[in-house]
């Protein structure tokens, strides 16, 4: 059974942006997800992930950041991305039917979700599909300051071969976050959760993460 997907648009503060909302019958919660820096909301990884979340009885909303909607390659300034996140979150709350709303995203999208939550966006929890802790090869430029201001539960899904987060540095961050943070490692996974030799399509790879995220959310609602 496939949950029908509603295409919609909302005002991001920098023009209208596209979104896709899907609500399974009697959802346990809603998850809003944003895309990584280089790919939009309809990237097969994100589509596969959200569709599989729907099968786990979790409603989803994917959306485009304004730069992606405009067909640009340069990511938005942070205040623009955070404003778009808040607007997406409100659009999801309006459709969630009273259930809890979680926020998350792939790489850059997850980091923007966390900045929005650190600045007061009332998400029930955060889900990071590959948190970009530092630029590849530059572990000295760790970007974790704002995470300690977040009080809701956070799930870090992380490929052990992801060059955007040195596993030891990430564990240090998780330890410092204490009980708020949960780390789930995908052994041999890169930044896109591809495992060498596994030869899975991005859609399948995205879908394979959904059960892990769904059980994290179920424990909280």
């Amino acid at each position: 059974m496939t949950v029908p997907e509603e295409r919609l648009a909302f005002d991001s503060g920098k023009g209208q942006v596209s979104a896709a909302f899907a609500r399974p019958p009697e959802p346990v919660a809603t998850l809003v997800v944003s895309h990584g820096a280089g790919s939009g909301m309809d990237h097969p990884f994100l589509v596969g992930f959200t569709r599989a979340m729907n099968e786990q009885a979790i409603a989803t909303l994917r959306f485009n950041f304004p730069y992606m909607e405009a067909g640009r390659r340069s990511t938005d300034p942070q205040p623009v991305a955070v404003a778009a996140w808040r607007a997406a979150f409100e659009a999801a709350v309006a459709r969630a039917g009273g259930g809890q709303v979680f926020a998350g995203g792939k790489s850059y999208g997850g980091r923007m979700a966390s900045v929005a939550v650190a600045e007061g966006m009332p998400a029930a929890g955060l889900v990071f599909l590959g948190y970009p802790l530092h630029p590849p090869g530059k572990p000295e430029r760790v970007r974790d300051e704002h995470l300690y201001a977040i009080e809701v539960p956070m799930l870090f899904l992380h490929g052990t071969l992801d060059p955007f987060a040195d596993p030891r540095l990430l564990k240090r961050v998780i330890d410092r976050l204490g009980t708020r943070a949960t780390l789930l490692e995908v052994t041999g996974g890169d930044h896109s959760f591809n495992v060498r030799g596994a030869k899975k399509e991005p859609r399948e790879v995205g879908a394979s993460l959904a059960p892990l995220v769904a059980s994290f959310i179920r424990e909280l609602v």
């Binding site: 405009a70 640009r72 390659r73 340069s74 300034p77 942070q78 991305a81």
Partner: peptide, 29 residues
């Protein structure tokens, strides 16, 4: 080019390619 607040999204652009990107910004950024 570095989007403000996003030091990790710093990118090196051909001058001409950025000129084209600027046009896409369409003055609404």
């Amino acid at each position: 080019v570095v989007p403000q607040g996003e030091p990790d999204e710093r990118r090196h652009w051909h001058t001409e390619c950025w000129r084209r990107e600027i046009r896409r910004l369409g003055g609404r950024a």
